[in-house]
Amino acid sequence: ITIHVNGVTYHFDNPEEAEKFAQKMAKTYQLKMEIHNGEFHME
């Protein structure tokens, strides 16, 4: 699972971890999250 946050790329093997991380980042930084081709993009 690949997550892009403001141009920084994070890779996770565990989908649950990826989702937790994505939600935490979105909440902490008030980010808008989109999913493209199974990759999370946040800005």
Rank of each mutant, 00 (worst) to 15 (best):
Y29D: 15
K24E: 13
F40R: 03
A18I: 02
Y10V: 06
K20R: 07
F12M: 01
N6W: 14
I3P: 00
H4W: 12
N14A: 06
E19T: 11
H11S: 05
G38S: 03
N14R: 06
G38R: 02
E34G: 03
E17D: 09
D13F: 10
T9W: 05
F40Q: 05
Y10S: 00
T28E: 15
A18H: 00
Q30W: 11
K32Y: 14
H41F: 13
M25N: 01
D13W: 11
T28H: 14
A22E: 02
K24H: 13
E17A: 09
A26K: 10
E34T: 11
E34V: 14
M33G: 01
E39S: 03
A18N: 00
A18E: 01
E43A: 09
V8R: 12
E16P: 03
I3V: 11
K20E: 09
D13K: 05
A22F: 04
N14W: 09
H4L: 06
E39Q: 08
G7S: 09
Y10T: 02
V8P: 00
M42S: 04
E34F: 13
H4Y: 10
E17S: 10
E16V: 09
F21K: 00
I3R: 01
H4N: 04
K20Y: 08
K20H: 10
K24G: 02
P15A: 11
A26N: 06
K20W: 06
N37P: 02
G38Q: 02
T28R: 14
I1D: 01
A18T: 01
E16N: 10
G7W: 14
P15K: 11
M25P: 00
Q23S: 06
H11V: 07
N14G: 07
G7L: 14
D13C: 14
V8H: 08
K32E: 15
T2A: 07
K20S: 11
P15F: 12
A18P: 00
E16H: 09
H11C: 15
I3E: 00
G7P: 00
T9K: 14
G38H: 05
M33F: 07
F40P: 05
Y10W: 07
A22K: 04
F21P: 00
M25L: 11
T9I: 11
L31T: 10
H41T: 04
P15V: 10
N37D: 06
I3N: 00
I3L: 04
M42E: 02
V5G: 02
N14S: 07
E16T: 09
E39V: 05
K27A: 11
E43R: 12
H36F: 09
A26D: 12
N37S: 04
E43W: 14
I3C: 14
M25T: 01
V5Y: 04
F21V: 01
E17Q: 08
N14C: 11
E43G: 08
K27F: 08
A26R: 06
I35K: 02
I35Y: 09
E39F: 05
A22N: 02
E39C: 13
H36T: 05
I3A: 02
H4S: 03
A26T: 03
